[in-house]
C-alpha cells in the first residue's frame, strides 16, 4: 500500500483545536491572534513538540488564504550567517503587508543556531520594522538567544509532550491510515520518541511502509536499523588497545552518518558511564572529554582532538587491566 504524503506534514494541525499539549500557551496565543496583534514571540523547547506548527497556525489564522504572501520562514541552522539577517530578513521586513493585518510575520526556526553577530544585527531590525513585521523565533535553549532579543520578545516555554498526547496523535493517524497499532507498540513508539512527536510519527510511517500491522517487533526492528551507528564499537576498540581500528571506525561513523564532532563527544560522554571500568577512570575520561569538547567548540580540528581523546581511552584500557 503506497502512502501519498509525509505524515508529519499531512497531519500537521492547522487549527488551534487540533493541537495536543501546550494548552496554557495555546490559550494565550489565541487571544493575541484574535486581537489581530501579536508581539515578537520566542518559542523555547525541545524539538517535535509543536513550535513550528503553532507558528504556522498563527499565520494561517491571521492571514487566512493569503498567508503565504505575508510569511517568511527561515531555518537559521541552514542559513545562520549575518548576511541572511542583513538581506533576506531586512528585505522582507521593510515592505508592507497585504490585506487587513498591518504587519507580516517572519518565522526564524532554530534561532539559537544564529551566530552572535547575526543576532546582534537582528535586534535593530526587530525594532526598526516593528510596524511592518513581527518575528516568531524558535529555539531549543533560550539561553543561546542574546538578552536584548529575549527582552524584545514574549517568551513561551514549551513542555515535552506527555505519553497521552503522543498516543492520541498516533491513534488519530492510525485510524485515518487504516493501521492496526498494538498496545505495546504504542508504548514503545512513545518511549523511543522521548516525547518528540515528529520522531514518533516518522517512526510510525517508516514501520507502516513495511506493513500496516504495527506490532512491537516491527517497531523495534525499524528503530534499530535507523539508529545511528554506535559509538560504543569505537570505544571498545580503543579500550582493547587497538588504536588503528578505533580511529578508522570513528571516521567511518562520522562520515557515513554525517555526525559532527560535538555530537560524537556527546555520545561518548554518555557512553563512558556504561563502560565496564572503574569509576575513578570514568572521572578522568570525563575530564578529558570535557576538555576535548571545549577545544572543538573553540575552533580546533574535530578529528585531531577526537584522536587525542581516543588515545586516552587506550590508556584507560591499560590501567583497567593492571
Amino acid at each position: 500500500m503506497g502512502q501519498s504524503d509525509i505524515w508529519t506534514e499531512k497531519y500537521r494541525p492547522t487549527k488551534f483545536e487540533e493541537m495536543v499539549g501546550q494548552q496554557e500557551i495555546l490559550k494565550r496565543v489565541r487571544s493575541l491572534v484574535q486581537a489581530l496583534n501579536i508581539p515578537h514571540l520566542l518559542f523555547a523547547g525541545p524539538s517535535g513538540i509543536g513550535k513550528s506548527t503553532l507558528a504556522l497556525i498563527i499565520v494561517k489564522e491571521l492571514y487566512k488564504d493569503s498567508w503565504r504572501e505575508n510569511y517568511l520562514e527561515l531555518n537559521a541552522s541552514d542559513e545562520r550567517g549575518i548576511d541572511v539577517v542583513r538581506q533576506k530578513v531586512k528585505d522582507f521586513a521593510r515592505t508592507k503587508s497585504l490585506g487587513n493585518v498591518p504587519f507580516k510575520v517572519i518565522f526564524l526556526d532554530e534561532a539559537d543556531a544564529l551566530t552572535k553577530e547575526a543576532q546582534q544585527a537582528l535586534r535593530r531590525t526587530m525594532e526598526n520594522y516593528t510596524n511592518t513585521c513581527r518575528f516568531i523565533m524558535s529555539c531549543n535553549y533560550s539561553s543561546k538567544i542574546i538578552d536584548p532579543i529575549q527582552s524584545r520578545c514574549v517568551v513561551f516555554r514549551f513542555k515535552l509532550l506527555e505519553k497521552k498526547d503522543v498516543s492520541e496523535v498516533i491513534k488519530r493517524i492510525a485510524e485515518k491510515e487504516n493501521l492496526q497499532v498494538a498496545e505495546d507498540a504504542l508504548e514503545v513508539l512513545y518511549e523511543i520518541s522521548e516525547g518528540d512527536c515528529r520522531k514518533a510519527i516518522n517512526l510510525l510511517q517508516a514501520t507502516a511502509s513495511i506493513s500496516p500491522d504495527i506490532n512491537l517487533e516491527m517497531v523495534n526492528i525499524i528503530s534499530a536499523t535507523t539508529k545511528p551507528a554506535d559509538i560504543k564499537i569505537v570505544l571498545d576498540y580503543a579500550l582493547a588497545g587497538d588504536f588503528i581500528n578505533a580511529r578508522e571506525k570513528l571516521l567511518d561513523v562520522m562520515l557515513k552518518e554525517s555526525i559532527s564532532g560535538t555530537d560524537i563527544i556527546k555520545a561518548i560522554q554518555k557512553e563512558i558511564w556504561n563502560l565496564q571500568i572503574d569509576s575513578e577512570i570514568k572521572v578522568k575520561l570525563t575530564e578529558k572529554t570535557g576538555e576535548t569538547e571545549f577545544r572543538i567548540v573553540e575552533g580546533s580540528d574535530e578529528f585531531v582532538q577526537l584522536e587525542s581523546l581516543l588515545a586516552s581511552f587506550i590508556l584507560a584500557g591499560i590501567k583497567q587491566k593492571v
Binding site: E9, S77, N202
Partner: peptide, 22 residues
C-alpha cells in the same frame, strides 16, 4: 516539512525508509 536540512540529515535513516517505499 518546515525542518532544517541539518536535522533531516541526522534523521536520514528513518526518512529514507519512508521515501523509498512511497
Amino acid at each position: 516539512v518546515h525542518y532544517s536540512a541539518k536535522r533531516a540529515l541526522k534523521d536520514f535513516n528513518t526518512i529514507k525508509i519512508i521515501l523509498k517505499a512511497n
